[in-house]
Design a binder for these strands. Structure first.
Lengths: 188, 188
DNA sequence: GCTAAAAACGTCAGTCTCTGACGCCAAAGA
DNA sequence: TCTTTGGCGTCAGAGACTGACGTTTTTAGC
């Protein structure tokens, strides 16, 4: 029974995902997760802030990658094209983790408490993108709107990609942003 | 001590808002709210699904009004203009309840648990708008994107309206949608 | 290889949220 | 006046977290 810290964390994640998919999120006490991982309930809360948090581990990684990608976009590019380019940079990350995240998204989709947390994580991403845009010199007033709209477009693209695996995520992204442009063009 | 049901509900809401603004949301047990309202903790949960839910009572009213407004928009209008028109219909509702909702939004802004619930409520609104758009014959595939983007634009407008009360909400709305059009026009 | 600091874990006690079951009492209708 | 219904109180309990403290393991320095 190793005690290296990271091993415990991974055992907790595996145990939680198994129990969640078997009995559901709400019907799985933290005590059961800890027991399957060979650890105490108290240790669970030393690795994760709360029960929901363990389902959203890759979010910080995605956020850092995204912020870095926005900063790396060529100067002079308008906000939405810049964000679209940044999202394209994250495609490999999604394609690589696809089989791993699939049971997670299904769990989130059918658990209201997890949907709330998912939306909160998305809001954190939007805030980070807003700061990244402002760092590029984008109008501080319009930066939040651009970041939010781009994030929604990205979310639509990934959602479609989950349901229709045949179309590459790159194409889903371009398609979604194209629809955004067309819809907005009808405004004036 | 009346026992009419609705009176208890209102006393609970008043007591909660007072205690929340005084000690904060997390530092206010449900037991204290019920005590100030002259009832038991159990009665609180007979009126509200959970502790957060009492802060979001007007959401269903807003949703119904919004769905109805989308349905009432003239035929042939494109999704985003239709949604913009529908949002304009809700302006009186916001202007009327402004002093009442002000302490609520401040509380939500500084309480992560309430932000999560707020985002969840917004997602419900987006789903309702998506259905309303589809009922108008909008492309079922693009309806979610339009509803989401319009909701974000509306949120930006109301947010600015809260901070700069001098500019009417109608103008904030038009301004935000104008920025959306300009930002999206730079995409192709 | 030995020892001391630091990190990880266990144990215990406790608060708070939320739920089910049961009984009581007031109000509305026959 | 009697019955029914709905709102409420009481009780018991599960589950999510947190703080405090002691113990064990790992790491670092000699």
């Amino acid at each position: 029974m190793p005690r290296s810290g990271e091993a415990v964390r991974q055992r907790l994640q595996r145990a939680a995902l198994e129990l969640f998919t078997e009995h559901g999120f709400d019907q799985t006490p933290v005590e059961a997760i800890a027991a399957r991982a060979g650890v105490t309930e108290r240790t669970f809360y030393r690795h994760f802030a709360d029960k929901r948090e363990m389902l959203f581990d890759g979010e910080t990684e995605l956020r850092d990658l995204l912020v870095q990608a926005v900063a790396a976009v060529p100067h002079g590019m308008k906000p939405l094209p810049a964000l679209r380019a940044a999202f394209h940079e994250t495609v490999p990350l999604f394609e690589r983790n696809r089989p791993l995240t699939e049971p997670g998204v299904r769990l989130i989709a059918e658990t209201p408490a997890l949907q709330e947390r998912s939306l909160a994580k998305r809001a954190l991403l939007v805030n980070a993108l807003t700061d990244a845009l402002r760092a590029r010199g984008v109008n501080p007033r319009t930066a939040p709107l651009c970041a939010q709209v781009a994030m929604d477009t990205f979310a639509v693209a990934t959602h479609r990609w989950m349901q229709e695996p045949s179309v590459p995520l790159h194409d889903q992204l371009d398609q979604a942003f194209r629809e955004l442009r067309l819809a907005a063009a009808a405004l004036k």
